[in-house]
Design a protein around this nucleic acid. Sequence first.
DNA 1: TATATAGTGTTTTTT
DNA 2: ACACTATATA
Length: 798
Amino acid sequence: MNETEILEKLNDRQREAVLATDGPVLILAGAGSGKTRVLVHRIAYLIDVVGVYPSQILAITFTNKAADEMRGRVDTLIGEGAEHVWVSTFHSLCVRILRRHADRIGFTRSFSIYDSDDQLTLMKSVFREEHVDAKRLKEKAVLAAISSAKDELVSPEKYRAVNRDFFGSQVADLYERYQRRLKESNAMDFDDLIVKTVELFEQFPEVLESYRNRFRYLMVDEYQDTNTAQFRFVSLLAGGHGNLCVVGDDDQSIYKFRGANIRNILGFEKIYPDAAVIRLEQNYRSTKHILSAANEVIRHNLGRKEKRLWTDHPEGEKIAVRRFDSSFEEAEYVCGEIASYIRDGLYDYRDCAILYRTNAQSRLFEEKFLMANIPYQIVGGVSFYSRKEIKDLLAYLKTIDNAVDDLAVRRIINVPKRGIGATTVAKLDDYAVSGGMSLFEAVCACGNVPTISGAAAKKVAAFSDFIGVLRAKAEDASVPDVLKEVIEQTGYVRELEAEHTEEADARIDNINELVNKAAQYQEEAETPTLSGFLEEVALVADIDTVDEGDDRVLLMTLHSAKGLEFPVVFMTGMEEGLFPSSLAIHADRPEEEIEEERRLAYVGITRAKERLTLTCARERMVRGEMVTSPMSRFIREIPRDIVDMGPVGAPGRRVTLPARGADAAIRSAVLASPSFGRPFPGTGERHRDSSYSNPYAAYQKAVRSAGGPAAGSDGGAASGPAGGSAASGLNKSGSEAAVPAGDGPLGYQTGDTVRHVKFGEGVVREIADGKRDYLVTVDFPSWGVKKMYASFANLKKV
DNA sequence: TATATAGTGTTTTTT
DNA sequence: ACACTATATA
């Protein structure tokens, strides 16, 4: 491409950003201002006009998803040679560097990467070793302190020097011990990946020099979220040539809890006085109303770089604000709205996203979506890789790959049960510690351990032989083959198959999925290795696995939503105490914390392209307790003239009707009904009903593993609210709700065979007349008995 | 050594 | 509400 072609599709500011190739550049990119576009065009310009080799360009992102997207767009725009541009996340880039030079800092190239579960396990072990009473000091609190220290590049020694109080010196001890254990296990935690790379660069200038020569042009995305360690890493790399282009938006800095240092972006010009500063303020994503809401909310923050996003898009719909009596009604409303969008052909499921502050909030929506048969995907929460069966199998791979990974060995030494109990393991452990060896070395030498009896020793020896066989196999087998061998030889799946429970079946599905991932890795990796696979597995975030092609509603936290956009966004749980979180409200320095929450609100609002709905509930269950909350201040910060308060009343009054999908007659009928304006009938009962929540858990597993509510499920949905006593309050269709029971409005009745879009044909068992909708029980031969609301199920008589 | 049970504490957000 | 831990028991 020539210069004109690259520049013609950009606005003035964007063009400026592309043309500022050399020296430090700060691009303040407001939400939706086309920053990825700028970065990709900048790369094209560097290669095609400036003549930089693709391999000399490095772009760093925070998530694999962002990296993949940029990779794809670079490939499309540039074509030939584009594959040599480095596009990577901080963490995977650091792993690549560390593997190459691991021996210099006392590790081998097959070092393990510990996730937060592993960290906790290790810290618990350190507590035991140090005889620390877990009642006095929490493992998680210590890990948090250590993590913050690492974010700030504070070593155990330095930590000790700075924190002289009791807690401080205790943590310093544990920090030191923890690091030693990691090193003995040839393992690093997430934070170490950055810290160790910085150490490598600082201790071995020639290594740093080689990377400085290699990467002549650096670009860092989401710069507002870099912590001190990442900042140092970037500064070191850019140190020679100074060609460092950072892109960020201080208003979207939402990772302070993870050590993100907003000063990195606010002070960029101080650190690099000759930096070119470019502001991208034209928004290409949202309507005028949505943008105004975002601008008005974020305006309440002090100490930000003044900017005001604008757009030439139409005004669009006003911001819908809906307040409900309970969180159940809130979920029902959102569900009903989405159903009506689909019914009216306005949007697809994939156009809609539900955002919330905490992962726990997803449950309510999930229940409603299951009932309504709406396809959905939850991002975050329990990760695929943190499931027991997956962690077990990965621990086998780690044991094969990195024999000194004590944590992995300990995890599988008696999985499946082979009669090596806690006592034997403790003896092996003692022997290992006294002999200064790893646990697995002790296992191999168990014949020499005097305290272990003959019978136990035999079992331990069998285990070490077993690993030996697997290791031999791993020498020349592919990753999926090694994994399959482990599954076969351990009988892991056979054992699960024998259980014949839904949970076991879900676990088997997960295992198959893991084999698929291994096979995919083997296909795609340049030089596939066990370490490489384990690393890829360790560094994926849940958001990375979201497939744009699937037609489903996405549910995720506001944090996960950063960088994404959707035509329709619901921001839910907009209540004081939840969002902003009560932890922020009652923090030592509340103003600061509230500002971070406000930035989170800003991120949420700016995800919406066309429609934005903010919902809140007067009452909701929080950890088993009913909590009453006022509406979030962030709603109040939006000017009233761009807010649509709903069909009846204003926020603060009872608003429980859908804005759409109900005509005037229906509306007045519902208004007149005795249930309107009173606590939702039966919600409390329903939630206490264990038949509702328990099967749901199993159902949920099946759903998650199969990627949608339609697959892999059976009886779960059958145990909905008993007898339809608490009918769906708000459904999409007024006409169905208003007509009395009978086969007239539904077009079928008990005994009829009906067709469902997902479950196929089934026989109607029961039609219960709920308050506002019918609850239909259908027996699907291949899926089991299901209860569903008539207006959502869209059943057709056959 | 493995399992059932009662009691305990916990959560904001995540690479 | 839920998961995890310590304890008792087979």
